[in-house]
Design a binder for these strands. Structure first.
Length: 453
DNA sequence: AGCACA
């Protein structure tokens, strides 16, 4: 129906009271004083991709227009708040939202909030903050570029993260690749069925991370103080997923307990397994209570956390043998008294086959992955029984051990960055973005597409 | 608290 055909009274109602004409542009009013584009992105990002924002207009400078990429995204935001008991709020102040009577924002060249920047704001749908650890976020978003910083926060019922990249080109690539996609199931706790990512640009250019914590990380500054995890995190919800919040202080040294040790696990085996996630500096093995334990030292906590995340609960040998149980050690620097079959210091130059870690020279997504086997003495165990995950539901068909098939990016040595690139290559192939270009070689028909939606 | 933007 044409507006011109209506009486002016009805037309006015449609325009200004309860405009039924859906638009991908929403008109927001009663915003707080000097509301920022960032605040509007936070509010609207859960519902869709924001393409333009115009805020601080109107007589009171308390109105804004937000344009979504898709009409149905604007509709989803409208219908959400139409049926929600909680109104939309910014800084605690109720915001009134309607469809704009315009179908798009015409003059958008001043709209910084939706212009490509180096920081993304990510809404993780259908999860609580306890469902997804910062390590998971880091792994997922490292797939396309070096992640500098992450800050997570809860906004209303949503879990959101600000993720900082080197530049807007990389951020843009990440946004294109991951927006609307799901976090792989194997990175989610059992009770979470799916977690879609909703990504827009943040107006931030440099996140101010005060300390490393379960909520925020600055990967460019490993010396940043760690905020203790000593606070009892309330509820007796022990059913946190396997990758949920850490309850134990993190450490760069992992303590591995090897359960059901039917087969010999040598220090070389341990070295090979743990090297897949970063440079292993030292290993000390010892027996205690009739069980074999190993302390594995990495250069930094991030690498250890990554290794822990991927290896926990997995078996060294096929058939459920030699299952790894990992925790953070209280140690941060192991003392190794000379080489033996139970302890080794890989930082002593003459024992090392590989060169010193190269300085980070930027992200190289398609860097050729050299086989790691050259640097590792294959231990004397049956190679037909090499490591696969204990639980195929956790990590289907993915070999952990670079014995013959999957080539891990062993560019001499690992830094935490190249550890990230390891997962990058995995995730890229998992997401099917770079077919054939990723780490695990073609033999890995074990990349199960259906698992990742 | 009610529609802007060369």
């Amino acid at each position: 129906m044409q507006i011109s055909e209506m009486s002016t009274e009805v037309a006015e109602q449609r325009l200004f009271r309860n405009n039924p004409m859906a638009s991908k542009v929403l008109h927001l009013r009663n915003l707080p004083w000097l509301c920022t584009e960032e605040e509007l992105v936070e509010l609207c990002n859960p519902f869709g991709e924001i393409v333009f924002i115009k805020c601080n207009f109107g007589a009171n400078r308390n109105q804004a227009f937000v344009e979504f990429a898709e009409l149905n995204q604007a509709i989803s935001m409208m219908s959400y708040y139409a049926s929600s008991s909680e109104p939309a709020k910014v800084r605690g102040q109720t915001v009134y939202i309607q469809y704009s009577n315009q179908q798009e924002i015409v003059n958008y060249n001043k709209s910084a909030g939706a212009i490509a920047g180096n920081v993304l704001i990510v809404t993780m749908e259908g999860v609580q903050c306890s469902d997804i650890s910062i390590e998971v976020i880091h792994v997922v978003f490292s797939a396309y570029g070096y992640v500098h910083k992450i800050a997570t926060f809860e906004k209303g019922a949503c879990f959101q993260a600000l993720i900082q990249f080197s530049n807007s080109d990389i951020a843009s690539e990440v946004k294109t690749a991951l927006n609307g996609r799901c976090i792989p199931r194997y990175l989610l706790p059992q009770h979470v069925t799916s977690c879609h990512l909703r990504i827009s640009y943040s107006a931030h250019t440099n996140l101010n991370i005060k300390f490393q914590s379960s909520r925020s990380r600055d990967y460019t500054n490993p010396h940043l103080p760690v905020k203790g995890h000593s606070v009892i995190e309330g509820t007796s919800q022990s059913a946190v997923g396997p990758y949920g919040n850490k309850r134990v202080p993190e450490s760069n040294v992992l303590l591995a307990f090897i359960k059901d040790m039917e087969y010999a696990v040598t220090i070389d085996v341990i070295h090979t397994v743990f090297s897949a996630y970063g440079t292993v500096l030292k290993i000390v093995m010892f027996e205690k209570n009739n069980g074999m334990h190993a302390l594995v030292q990495y250069p930094d906590v991030i690498t250890a956390a990554t290794a822990k995340m991927y290896l926990e609960g997995h078996c060294i040998y096929d058939g459920g043998y030699c299952k790894l149980h990992l925790s953070y050690s209280r140690h941060t620097n192991l003392t190794v008294m000379g080489d033996s079959d139970k302890s080794r210091d890989y930082t002593i130059p003459e024992t090392r086959v590989v060169a010193a870690p190269p300085a980070f020279t930027g992200w190289q997504p398609s860097a050729p992955a050299a086989p790691v086997s050259a640097a590792v003495q294959m231990p004397s165990y049956d190679p037909s029984r090499l490591i696969i995950p204990a639980s195929s539901s956790t990590y289907p068909g993915q070999s952990l051990m670079p014995h013959s098939g999957p080539a891990y990016p062993a560019t001499g040595a690992y830094s935490s960055t190249s550890a990230a690139s390891l997962h990058a290559s995995r995730l890229i192939s998992l997401y099917g973005m770079h077919p054939g270009a990723s780490g695990p070689s073609g033999s890995s028909s074990s990349q199960p597409h259906g698992y990742y939606q």
